[in-house]
Simulated assay, not measured.
Amino acid sequence: MILVLLGLLILAVAAVVAVAGIFANAGGAHELTNSFSVFGHQVGYRQEGRPQGRRAQ
């Protein structure tokens, strides 16, 4: 029973930290301005708003 309560407490603390992180990451200072690659695939957008990188096949 104590381990269940401890697990729920840890889960609640993690949820609070996640929500605080989401709200702290708002604003123009945190915008993605450049594209980057993940496993060889381009991620991000150009100025025109179109996806950049490989075409869908």
Rank of each mutant, 00 (worst) to 15 (best):
A24M: 07
L32N: 11
M1R: 08
A15S: 14
Y45F: 14
V4C: 10
V4F: 12
A15F: 12
Q47C: 00
A26Y: 11
A56T: 11
S37V: 08
Q57H: 11
T33Q: 10
G21L: 11
E48W: 01
V16I: 15
L6T: 15
Q42N: 06
Q57E: 13
R46K: 12
F23T: 12
Q52S: 02
P51M: 05
T33C: 04
L9A: 15
R46Y: 02
Y45P: 00
Q42W: 02
I22C: 02
Y45H: 09
L6M: 14
P51Y: 01
L9W: 12
L32M: 10
A20T: 08
V13F: 09
A24R: 12
F23R: 12
E48M: 01
L9Y: 13
V13Y: 03
V38N: 01
R46S: 13
L3Y: 13
R46L: 05
A20C: 10
F39L: 13
G49M: 06
N25C: 07
G40F: 06
I22K: 04
G53L: 07
L3E: 15
R54T: 05
G7W: 02
G49V: 09
T33W: 00
L5F: 15
L3S: 13
G21T: 13
Q57W: 08
I22T: 05
E48N: 15
E48Q: 07
I10D: 08
L3F: 11
F39N: 15
Q57P: 15
H41C: 00
Q47H: 01
R50N: 07
G49S: 07
Y45S: 03
V4E: 13
A15N: 10
F36S: 09
S37P: 01
A56E: 13
E31F: 03
F39C: 05
L9K: 06
A56I: 11
S37Q: 14
Q57R: 15
Q57C: 04
A18N: 03
L3T: 12
G27H: 02
S35D: 11
I2Q: 14
L8C: 14
L32Y: 02
V16A: 12
S35G: 14
R50T: 10
L6K: 14
E31C: 04
Y45A: 04
A15Q: 13
L11I: 03
V4N: 11
G27T: 05
L11T: 05
H41F: 06
